[in-house]
Design a protein around this nucleic acid. Structure first.
Length: 455
DNA sequence: GAGACTTTAGC
DNA sequence: CTAAAGTCT
């Protein structure tokens, strides 16, 4: 290792502070980031995530310069980048783990070219760290969590320091290196060079969000489901791209605990995120297939189109879809409500809903998204029991009592009394300007779903 | 507002 | 035996 030319491949860890990648000791290192053509080609040119990532890459480049390094940015197919770097004498690459199908297939191809070292930078635990006595994986969260807690040590929250490795010599370091047909094309360092549009959104700094956790943590468990309140951490997008280290969050929790705050509820949610990545790692079939229960889905295109255009006539559902499309985010409780509605009331296959979320969510994470949809549809491992069907009206009444969330995202409903927006009878029997009547009736849809479960 | 509904891993 | 992001009566 000592004499090798080493690539540090940033992907889900777009930061300098507390980076396992930068703690790697090597003779000379080349930090890189790849705008993957295989992924980008399927996205719309104004995709908010690409804009977000580009802005993080600009920040990362500057942060790396401050410690004597540079970031080389590629716009290419991943394999083409490593063929090129191999031709320049690079022999090994370090990168954070990624367990979704696309990432696994991509990494396998990279491994055929160079030595790939995987780093567990994104999760608290290693995938084989929390296992049953017979060394198999847990399929129920409660016992997984119980063991995970007892295994948790200070080491899990360790802060990694920069190894002071020296930068490898590389030309045109300030350009974007596009590779097309084995040819390098040098382009200016701008989002237009990867054929995407700049967005005017200003993203909140992850450290600011983390510092705000102190004000939220005490009431987190009690308030996090109230969809109009800013009671959640909003850190999911930072965990997705590694603009904050999971260990930095753990250290913050340790600090808050010392100050006397009850932090376990939030910690448990972080472990849930770990657990979902762990399940996808141990049971890759979950990517696409129903695991436990099977549902006789019917793909009704009218239902689907009503759903994705926020025209189901159920206010909480349409408000959620509206939030997703306009902001790239959706409150977690609303994600559960709309996913349940999609699978159970509309009898649409969860995979279609998962893909729809994937298209818009800023914090899109394959493991969290797939496993959450599998939970909602009652088809996954440790999923919601199939007979438990969310009543969207009860849910909105409970978690958006004054309909503030609904009215924020569907402003044309602002003059309707909140209680009517949670009232199925009212919505069925009254005309609302510019708004359709509900496309399904709750009781009918629930019954239809139960009849569609293959036992 | 307490109890029924209902499944099953894991200890 | 316990636990699991709920609903309905």
């Amino acid at each position: 290792m000592e004499n090798k030319k080493t690539i540090l491949w940033f992907r889900r860890d777009l930061r300098v502070e507390d980076s396992i990648l930068l703690s790697i000791k090597a003779k000379e290192v080349l930090p890189i980031f790849i705008f993957d053509k295989a992924i980008l080609k399927s996205l719309q040119k104004d995709d908010k995530r690409v804009d977000f990532i580009f802005k993080q890459i600009e920040k990362l480049k500057i942060s790396l310069q401050k410690i004597g390094l540079e970031l080389v940015v590629f716009y290419a197919e991943v394999v083409d980048v490593f063929v090129y770097l191999k031709s320049l004498g690079y022999e090994e690459v370090y990168a954070s783990v990624d367990y979704d199908n696309y990432a696994l297939a991509r990494d396998k191809k990279v491994e055929e070219l160079l030595t790939l070292h995987r780093l567990n930078d994104c999760y608290i635990y290693e995938p084989n760290e929390v296992l049953k006595a017979d060394a198999s994986a847990y399929v129920v969260f409660a016992p997984y969590y119980k063991l995970a807690k007892t295994l948790y040590t200070k080491e899990h929250a360790l802060k990694y320091e920069f190894s002071n490795s020296k930068l490898s010599n590389f030309e045109n370091i300030d350009k974007i290196h596009e590779i097309e047909n084995q040819t390098i094309i040098l382009k200016p360092f701008a989002i237009a060079s990867i054929n995407f549009k700049k967005n005017s959104i200003v993203y909140e700094d992850s450290k600011v969000k983390l510092s705000r956790l102190k004000d939220k943590i005490a009431s987190y468990i009690e308030r996090r489901d109230y969809v109009y309140e800013q009671a959640t951490s909003n850190l999911s997008v930072d965990l997705r791209f590694g603009t904050i280290s999971i260990r930095a969050i753990l250290r913050e929790l340790i600090k808050l605990k010392k100050l006397g705050f009850e932090t376990e509820g939030f910690f448990r949610q972080l472990v849930f995120r770990d657990y979902y990545a762990y399940l996808l790692y141990h049971f890759p079939i979950l990517h696409t297939k129903d695991f436990r229960k099977c549902i006789n889905y019917e793909f009704n295109e009218d239902y689907y189109n009503s759903f994705i255009t926020a025209n189901t006539g159920i206010p909480i559902v349409d408000a959620g879809i509206s939030e997703l499309i306009t902001t790239g985010n959706m409150h977690n409780r609303v994600r559960m409500i709309v996913a349940s509605f999609f699978c159970k009331h509309l009898l649409l296959p969860w995979q279609k809903g998962e893909q729809f979320f994937a298209k818009y969510l800023m914090d899109y994470d394959a493991a969290s998204n797939i496993l959450s949809w599998q939970w909602s549809s009652s088809t996954g491992i440790d999923a919601q029991p199939y007979f438990r069907i969310f009543n969207p009206y009860s849910q909105s009444k409970k978690f958006d009592k004054d309909a503030n969330y609904i009215k924020m995202h569907l402003p044309f409903l602002k003059d309707i009394k909140a209680k009517y927006l949670h009232d199925e009878n009212f919505l069925f029997n009254n005309e609302i300007e510019n708004y359709p009547k509900p496309i399904v009736e709750h009781k009918f849809a629930s019954q239809r779903f139960l009849n569609s479960v293959r036992k």
